[in-house]
Design a binder for these strands. Sequence first.
DNA 1: TATGGTTACGTTATAATATAACACTATGTC
DNA 2: GACATAGTGTTATATTATAACGTAACCATA
Lengths: 165, 165
Amino acid sequence: MSPKAQPPGIAFRKHDHRRCQRQLLAEATQLCAERNLRLTSRRRQVLEILLASHQPMGAYDILAKLNRTAPNEQIAPPIVYRALEFLLGEGLIHRIESLNAFISCAHPGHRCGAQFLICRDCDQVAELEVSDNGLLAEAGSLGFAVDHSVVEITGVCAECQKHVG
Amino acid sequence: MSPKAQPPGIAFRKHDHRRCQRQLLAEATQLCAERNLRLTSRRRQVLEILLASHQPMGAYDILAKLNRTAPNEQIAPPIVYRALEFLLGEGLIHRIESLNAFISCAHPGHRCGAQFLICRDCDQVAELEVSDNGLLAEAGSLGFAVDHSVVEITGVCAECQKHVG
DNA sequence: TATGGTTACGTTATAATATAACACTATGTC
DNA sequence: GACATAGTGTTATATTATAACGTAACCATA
């Protein structure tokens, strides 16, 4: 029953981001192919914007980026929200409820619930994947059929604690 | 390490609600007295509205109720949000992030993180209080200093599973 | 009980987030 | 090509939340 965790979220570690980004995009492409879904250029655009950082972004931030990229067309909110909806549905991104923001998924397609550590100092978000958090078991034992779980822990990451505040 | 849970949230059980409501309001009153804080009539009003049901309510629902109660005055959003902020700060209510809604706390003043089971069929919300969900320990072991945790599990409660859909 | 500091409230305006509704376009199938 | 369907574009609007500033209540102390 004791939970096992992955290493800390990628956001809190240095890594070859170019490579990481390419990798995740490739996984997304393959996953959509397998599922017979269309990763259209809009959807890819939005995913790429989220992959460009491992930071959460608000829908309107994404919108602004889209509009900055293509200043001739004027993109409106529903376009972004629809792309986000698709990506969420396929487990390619997550929504961070407590930030009203979206973030690319570190383990695309797993569809199992993720957990987030949110540093309120550096605003970085780490995605964990704890296999069993006990709570889901608890829910099950109450006869509650789980659809989706939101686990978001806010605080200060180790790095920011050093540079005090 | 294995989590221990309270019985399922009060919302999923029959209970003497009048009594429960009075009890929670009394606890809130005492707690504010102890902490030397003012449970003003506005704050109490908002708390009472939330205590009237164990259901989550949006800020604007609360606002509407306030305005229905006193049709002569015209109350505006900031008044509600300020009362909510106070009540949240003292652990008298919780915010359900995934619903943008607020709910009275079943264990006022504990200040430790709560967990919620949200039935998407009957819209009831049960508050659990799992002593150790493993995740907080995990966060700790990563050197992450936890401030606040959001745990919200959406699904279908046992009752609603019977009455099928 | 006047005075001043602080906390809470009231009011207006507006920001930020999200969706409804409907028209148009692209894609795949026969 | 004709059709069905899925995706996109566009306009308008709903929903949730806060900034900014003035007023009132509370409360300590002189």
